[in-house]
């Protein structure tokens, strides 16, 4: 197989450049394998965050040829042989070094999400849920927190000034899981509207496009949450029904 031509971002917050490496490859290699080979043979100080190499830990997020991807799940034969492949760090988050970014923004948002608030348990102290009530939430629990959806979302990617007012797609998935939980008693409509900035999302679906777990973030989490916020704040008929029925 011909050598891969890798253009890898090298540098830190103060500056850097794309540096080119020629790497012998074998069949079946993924981008992370090639990055590891560079690290082992040509650039021992290349910083890259990784852990499972199986698409489940969400550590090796980067931008390969400009597309947000998990490096461990991106096969080299996806790219035309002999053409340079660009590997850059996630653009949305502050750069620490090389391919490693500081994703602490997400942990800060996570702390603000109103927690699960269960109702009263049954007489024997347990909860019983029907299968159809929890099926919908299973999809949301697949999230591996790779933060590729947060990285690609233009609300904060191109407008970092929105970060204090916008939770981002990963947390809309979390909020959808809580809101649709059959045992949860809390309403997060106010949080979604005022704190999480749900209305910033213009549903352009990039989060869904890059999700390595194929979660339908926009259709199954964000839009249903938008509809719940509409019922709560923008729908006079729903408001009237709530007043009359008391729900």
């Amino acid at each position: 197989m011909p050598d891969a031509i890798m253009r890898v971002w090298r540098g830190d917050a103060t500056g850097g450049a794309f540096k080119e490496y020629r790497v012998p490859t074998d069949e079946g290699m993924v981008v992370l394998d090639v990055i590891h080979k560079i690290q082992a043979t040509q650039a021992n100080d290349l910083a890259v965050r990784w852990n499972c190499k199986a698409g489940k830990c969400g550590s090796c997020s980067a931008e390969v040829n400009g597309r947000p991807r998990l490096m461990c799940m991106t096969r080299m034969n996806l790219f035309p042989a002999g053409e340079p492949i660009t590997v850059a760090p996630m653009k949305t988050f502050p750069l620490i070094r090389d391919l490693v970014t500081d994703v602490a923004f997400n942990f800060g948002v996570a702390k603000t999400v109103p927690a699960f608030k269960p109702g009263r348990s049954e007489a024997d102290g347990t909860f019983r849920m029907m299968q159809q009530d929890i099926d919908r939430g299973q999809e949301f629990h697949k999230c591996i927190e790779c933060f590729l959806c947060q990285n690609v979302c233009h609300v904060i990617r191109d407008h970092p000034e929105n970060m204090p007012a916008f939770a981002g797609p990963r947390f809309f998935v979390r909020l959808a899981a809580l809101e649709m939980h059959p045992m949860d008693t809390d309403s997060r409509a106010e949080y979604l509207r005022l704190k999480a900035g749900l209305a910033f999302c213009n549903i352009t679906k990039c989060c869904t496009e890059v999700c390595p777990e194929h979660i339908h973030i926009t259709d199954n989490a964000i839009i249903p949450l938008k509809e719940r916020v509409v019922s709560e704040y923008y729908d006079p008929v729903a408001w009237l029904l709530r007043k009359l029925v008391g729900k």
Binding site: E63, H154, V155, H159, N162, A199, F200, T204, C206, V210
Partner: peptide, 22 residues
């Protein structure tokens, strides 16, 4: 806003659907 995923938004400021008219 944006033209495609991971392609820069064409606008200097962005408020989404938070205000009038959106």
């Amino acid at each position: 806003s944006p033209p495609a995923c991971a392609v820069r938004d064409a606008h200097g400021a962005y408020t989404g659907e938070t205000g009038f008219p959106l």
